[in-house]
Design a protein around this nucleic acid. Structure first.
Lengths: 133, 133
DNA sequence: TCCACGGTTAGAATTAGTCTAAATACAGAC
DNA sequence: GTCTGTATTTAGACTAATTCTAACCGTGGA
């Protein structure tokens, strides 16, 4: 295990268990932005015991609440998970649906003039386009 | 019917039917961003015949494909529909979940430096915060 | 009029996600 | 080491959103 997952979970107030460790480890090492089911498929054979989908959902929700990972939605009706907790935005390749992280600094300036009525907590930019490999 | 729905549908290549007209009309006159079920509930008694959910979904998808309305996702797992086709972004009230349209001009500048690899088609800004009424 | 075809219908099927109840693991008290 | 209580995990039932299916209906053109 490349990352010290037990410590990461503990410092975020999530009691480490084998299931949670293997899920968190997968999220940290992958750079795609998997759905719950993709996490389940990727992780289920890495444990000596059977893994329940409920555990995957419980763990993902616990990790989101603890601030270890983020939820994101780029397509309708599917939640994806992202272990990149730095301030960043997303670029969606409209052909493949692949999602790329765009560091916040890349978006040099965004100037909002919403008036007093709106108090902004955060904003997120989703960019759609094509990626040339 | 306030808008000339038949003409709107026809010019977008969607054959007008009573079901489609009443759904499109509702979307044009409402300023909230309804889910498919909210559309169904709002519209089902406006027709002399029973309305099927399948028709609502078919119609919404047809209108999206034809470019009459847009799909949007602010919360995980629910699709909302927006008949405002002008260039705009969204402000989500984190307390109520209500969505407000933010005209594109309000976002004065956004400067992307993504390099040659990424070809941007469009971008969308979702702002999260509180609204004082 | 008749036919073909697109649109609509009700309900079945699918999918993503949550809930439940029973089984298990584990930490602390004795 | 054993007991006990609490948290976690499991399988499967359940729910909500959406799509699929097969039968039915309505309208325009031959």
């Amino acid at each position: 295990m490349k990352h010290n997952i037990e410590e990461l979970l503990s410092t975020h107030g999530v009691k480490p268990t084998p299931q949670r460790a293997v899920i968190a480890d997968y999220l940290l090492e992958t750079h795609c932005h998997p759905t719950a089911d993709e996490v389940f498929q990727a992780v289920k054979d890495k444990l000596p015991v059977a893994l329940s989908r409920a555990t995957v959902y419980n763990t993902l929700n616990a990790l989101v609440t603890a601030g270890v990972i983020q939820e994101m939605t780029t397509e309708a009706g599917r939640v994806r998970y992202d272990a990149n907790m730095s301030d960043h935005h997303h670029f969606v390749d409209i052909e493949s649906g692949k999602v790329f992280d765009i560091p916040a600094e890349t978006i040099k300036q965004i100037n909002l003039e919403l008036g007093d009525k709106f108090k902004v907590h955060k904003f997120h930019v989703t960019i759609f386009g094509e990626v040339k490999e």
